[in-house]
Design a protein around this nucleic acid. Structure first.
Lengths: 148, 148
DNA sequence: CCGCATCCTAGGCGATACTG
DNA sequence: CAGTATCGCCTAGGATGCGG
């Protein structure tokens, strides 16, 4: 079934790609596939930063917003987008939303066990990138010279 | 310096957030900070899929395009965007571009050692998500019921 | 304090056609 | 075959104002 475009592909590569295709077929691959949605979240402008802050404890909505401003050293996440991202993270099961019965109600967010577990992966990735900062910047410099 | 908005934050949380702030300050945090750019790439529509294919060996541009179509089971990446993504990946130092002296020249791409190393991290993250598929989908279902 | 509705802009991505 | 140029769409994200 993959043959038509497997013409002059190296046999060893052909085997590996078949395994990859099988893996992709088993999982969804669609837009709402967890792999794509979660990696999409981690790659967006704010979600990872929000998760990093929530990793330190429980946060109120407004404090969370102000803290993103401090940490990114630029500007705060807009109120609308923060709510959007918190909803998305809550939907995936990574954070939990608490609402008190006070008037006005106080809303706070914290990581779920699943979200805490996710952060070990995210931490690993961030640390990997940070320790590879030098070769990455070197590659960018070289790339810049070859592309006038 | 963080005091003004540290009013009623839990002392234990305050310590952790200070450590996080220090970590963010040391690294850039800007738009072209490696952490943001790399995670942005991994979270976009195509880069991770391209990396997964290149993990299997060396690929020509056109074959790579056709393979993304097969693997995503939807449509192929557009020629323009594939070139864009390959350039970005090359710039970060994750893939290498080979051009033969033939006429017409043949162009092929493969992972660099750095890119291969990156894939161990990406693999870990993808595997983590795949093994958490059930709780994530369960959380989505519960979220859907609470949000009519 | 929190969330929602509205409007707006920038950028990601696809489609097509064209060059070497 | 690989890459570029142009176009148009669509979504992420910001700004503001209102209501609970």
């Amino acid at each position: 079934m993959l043959d038509p475009l497997m013409h002059d592909i190296d046999p060893a590569v052909r085997e590996k790609i078949a395994a990859l295709a099988e893996e992709m077929r088993r999982n969804g691959g669609g837009r709402d596939d967890p792999v794509r949605s979660v990696m999409g979240l981690l790659g967006d402008r704010w979600s990872t930063l929000v998760l990093l802050v929530l990793e330190t404890g429980t946060w109120r909505h407004a404090d969370l917003r102000r803290m993103t401003a401090r940490l990114s050293a630029e500007q705060a996440i807009s109120q609308r987008v923060l709510t959007l991202k918190l909803r998305a993270l809550e939907r995936e099961g990574f954070i939990h939303r608490d609402v008190t019965t006070d008037v006005p109600p106080k809303v706070s967010y914290r990581l779920t066990p699943l979200g805490l577990d996710l952060m070990t992966q995210v931490r690993g990735l961030i640390d990997w990138i940070n320790t590879r900062r030098a070769p990455i910047l070197a590659s960018r410099a070289a790339f810049g010279e070859e592309h006038p």
